[in-house]
Amino acid sequence: MQDRVVGGLEASARMRRRPRLAVAVVEELVNAIVTEVYPAGTALPPENMLCDHFGVSRTVVREATTALTEKGLVVSLQGRGTIVREQNNWNLLDPMILAALFRREDGISYLDNLSEIRSSLEASMAAKAAARATPEGLAELTAQIDKLEGLVEMPAAYVHEDVNFHDVIMRMSGDRLSKAIIDGIQSRALNTHGYAGRLSVEHVRDTQAAHRRVYDAILARDAEAAAKAMREHIESSWTKRRASGLQD
């Protein structure tokens, strides 16, 4: 387990150290692989062709190929080149891969899955927040729900503070691992039009009412009610946003 953690940290550090050109090449190739421009089992273009296509050196292409390998997307095979691997080998929590998955034609199915994950984890965290609530945590949550109340007629501004409302609850729960999972996955989805849906004051009013139910349960330190309210809020909100996004 420790070896895996250290390996992950080393891979992250290597990506940060890679030249900008290499990162740009990686992003384009990740998108091409995930969206099946290069399906599983096929080979990426030869190194010289990639150099010409991107206008970069062989060193940059090799750096990019190493990054793709670290993400589980490709494997180098003697005599066959760089081969795209099956999806079950991909690191689906990798930010670049996630962003590309949400852009696929079947991206809505991954957003459905994200909603299921959020519903489960955030319901559990809401229960923990209620059980572990401190005066300081409740004061912060109260300030946030009041701030949201003042933004109901301004959907675009409300969305930003909506994320912060959930963040306060997740921090109150003390469940740092679940919070990290949600933060990592949702950060990429928030930039996806299909996840946001159409903003409307009516939707925001419904959302605020749901937030109030979560808030009231946490304030009452009712863990079961907090979990139920959070689960219903996330599931109902996604159902509405999903329908709105599909109509666009």
Rank of each mutant, 00 (worst) to 15 (best):
S187T: 13
E153F: 08
R20K: 14
V84N: 10
E140W: 04
S244L: 10
L21D: 12
D175W: 00
A217V: 07
H203M: 15
L219C: 07
R118L: 05
R188N: 09
S187E: 09
N91T: 11
T142C: 03
N88A: 11
D146M: 11
G150Q: 06
V60P: 02
A131V: 04
R18E: 08
N164W: 10
D248Y: 11
A189S: 06
L141T: 01
R18D: 06
S57I: 13
T82D: 09
L151N: 05
A220P: 05
I33G: 03
A226G: 03
L148K: 07
G194N: 14
T35I: 09
V60G: 05
W238C: 01
T69A: 07
I108D: 05
R221M: 09
C51K: 15
H53G: 03
A99K: 12
G197P: 08
R231P: 00
V75R: 13
R205F: 07
H166A: 03
D146R: 14
V61D: 03
S173E: 00
I97F: 02
M172Q: 00
H233Q: 13
N31H: 15
D216Y: 03
E47A: 11
A24N: 11
V30I: 12
L199F: 13
K240E: 14
S173F: 00
V84I: 15
S76Q: 12
A67I: 01
N48K: 15
A129V: 01
L219M: 06
E161N: 10
K128M: 08
P95F: 04
E10R: 10
D3C: 01
D206F: 13
M125V: 01
